[in-house]
Amino acid sequence: MEEIRATEIMAAAGARELRDNDVIVVGLGLPQVAAVLAKRTHAPGLTSLLEIGVVNMNPVDTPVGLADSRIFYRSTCWSGFLDILGMNLHRGIVDVGFLGALEVDRFGNINTTLLKEAPGKVRYINGSSGGNDVASLAKRVIIIMRHEKRKLPMALAHLTSPGFVGGKSRREMGLRGEGPHRVVTNMAILGFDPETHAASLLSLHPGIRVEEVVANTGFPLRVPKEVAVTPLPTPEELRLLREEIDPQRAYLG
């Protein structure tokens, strides 16, 4: 069998963070892939919501993003921002916000807006879209991203979506959602300490060493004595990813 790719481990690990019957809001990219995988494996009762106004995406062809008709076809309800981000997310019934990121700091704060190239020079990428809303309001937030030192910096170029800002509790910040829960990368899974709210290493993907993760993390990462190993995707998960969900490898690389 073909070698397992890091993106496939990420998608499967992301999918496993979702529980059956969760209601989730899904962002652009790998979160879409992971959500479909979860729904077709251990979480058939999962309800996925897309901010554009799609409930329960179930595409037969891989979409290029949120605004692709491929993701509208076969869903169970069409609405819009007011329903998805308003009457579901703002209402407080969304269990998981599933997001990508340009940068994440050690308190799970997310940047999706811009990067700093040189002092005083910025490069705009995108913005919040629903990201700030999801990070502010979902019960738990799962971030999926590549593990690189510059993407996990000490200080963000821009704080778009709040985690535990400055290590503060969510209550202190006046936010309803409970904040960041996991960061799933191509090397490891990170969690957040319930007291200090700082990121810690939860599990390493097979073949990855602690030193590699630490060397590729721009902020100090708490590493416990015993670190678990992330389970590899099962043959069935790999088959679904490769044959049904992303056969053209638009997201899985």
Partner: peptide, 26 residues
């Protein structure tokens, strides 16, 4: 953010001059 723009339009559509929101904070 997406929701804050949408809420802004909603307030406009309802003929109210402002609307409270729980995102964007912090």
């Amino acid at each position: 953010s997406s929701l804050s723009i949408c809420f802004g339009y909603l307030a406009g559509a309802l003929g109210i001059s402002f609307i409270p929101i729980k995102s964007l904070i912090a």
